[in-house]
Design a protein around this nucleic acid. Structure first.
Lengths: 256, 256
DNA sequence: TCCTATCGTTTCATAATATAAAACGCTGTT
DNA sequence: AACAGCGTTTTATATTATGAAACGATAGGA
């Protein structure tokens, strides 16, 4: 895999397909020629092939070409079939071995996060109280805040208002303005911290896993007792976390 | 276009892509070879090309291939860009000329339908009172019933319960069991009738326009005064309507 | 009305391209 | 250790995609 593989006709076909997808009112062959620099005969043949496949529609009256919904069909199969837990397994185990700490993968549901996967720390003495399937409010967890930071301000406010805001620990953020400020910081830094806001004695670094829409439903975190979580260690962990989240984002079509 | 156009490498690539989309946990090259009958070298190269394009992901650890989310991205562009009103214009005008009657295109929104396009009858003396943007309950219109018939029973009941059920005319169906029975008939026949249930003196035949999910958000109808709407004429109109809806369904990736 | 320009479609000779055989290298198994 | 299975890479070959050109249809202008 020295140089990236390519197949000419495939590449050209995808160029055309991507063009069609962006055009509301269909595209003519000559327009496609102009945009891709291909010969009209070539365009015609490639479109023909995709038409017989159902990926492209051809309006005989206007002889314009459109992207067909068959792609949406494929897309819906994909969405049904992403098994993020399965796909994250190797990455999370690697991350846990590398750091020696506990790794969590969570999914947002409404105003809460749900723990969907966990790899325990090798320091088996200490255990987080988290369990798969357990739910926590978004506002007081690192992962929740990380996900929120990828969403529009409007959503952030909605979630805040629908949340059972109170001090789970002395460190929980319970002031709205302070919270919005925190979200802004997370956007700037690209990751979130949880400084004992959810559970006394436990700190964590968390990062969202954005999908192809640029928003996130998933996030991952590294948790550890405060004694192992100096500021400099959190910095260090954040970089490792970022790499892992980046990999997983690729699976969902997103990027950090 | 005597025989359907095709491009070998494209065709093969789409075979592979469709395979990948259906496989939750990734697919190996040899599995793809077995399923498509292609040489492993060919599969490898085609997958490579799609990988560099971002449509396919390759897990280096397990060397399994996955369908990437880039297709979902394309898909979302398509969905943003379907302009069904524009695309239906020619079909509706044709249908109106062919039948001499008024044609409506509607969109479902919650428990109502919204008129989104209309081509008036040539019998310009008679005018329906419908206007673009106007809303009507689903339960008392042919188009509403046609759309409901494509949805799950659960949804049908929900809509019925949320509807302002009362007799708009003496013919409006106001009994739930009778209504469910009506929906069953529509499913059987593939089209809906409106026998003065919404407006006295006006009958119509209506059919849904299913999309790639098999459900419908849109429907189309042919309306006429009762005097021109004998049972036999309705039969006849239904066939013309069906052809038109079939064409439009193709645009949305569905079929009747 | 005819001429011209533009665009999509079809045909076909040519060469560039995709192909499949074979060799290679890696991993895990007997 | 030898083997078997699988993914990857290379390479000679001919099949396949290519683009020039001819064709046909449609629209606009003279």
């Amino acid at each position: 895999m020295a140089e990236p593989a390519s197949v000419q006709s495939l590449d050209r076909a995808f160029d055309l397909l991507e063009n069609l997808c962006r055009n509301r009112n269909g595209t003519t062959i000559s327009a496609l020629c102009a945009q891709t620099g291909l010969h009209k005969s070539t365009v015609h043949r490639l479109l023909g092939a995709m038409t017989t496949r159902g990926y492209v529609l051809h309006d005989n009256a206007t002889s314009k070409y459109y992207a067909g919904m068959k792609l949406c069909e494929l897309s819906s199969y994909i969405l049904e079939n992403v098994d993020i837990v399965e796909r994250s397994r190797a990455t999370m185990e690697h991350l846990s071995r590398e750091t020696g700490e506990t790794i969590h993968l969570v999914l947002r549901e409404e105003n809460e996060i749900v723990y969907v996967h966990k790899v325990d720390s090798v320091h088996s003495a200490i255990r987080m109280f988290s369990r798969i399937g357990m739910r926590r409010p978004m506002f007081c967890t690192g992962v929740g805040k990380a996900i929120l930071a990828t969403l529009p301000d409007e959503t952030v406010r909605e979630v805040w208002q629908a949340s059972p805001v109170h001090a789970y620990t002395p460190y929980t953020i319970i002031d709205e303005r302070a919270f919005l400020h925190e979200i802004a910081n997370i956007r700037r830094d690209g990751y979130a911290q949880d400084n004992e806001e959810n559970e006394l004695g436990v700190k964590c670094v968390a990062a969202a896993i954005p999908d192809y829409t640029g928003h996130a439903s998933y996030a991952m975190s590294i948790s550890a007792p405060v004694t192992r979580m100096s500021n400099s260690r959190m910095q260090e962990l954040h970089h490792l976390l970022r790499t892992a989240c980046s990999e997983l984002a690729a699976v969902l079509g997103g990027s950090l």
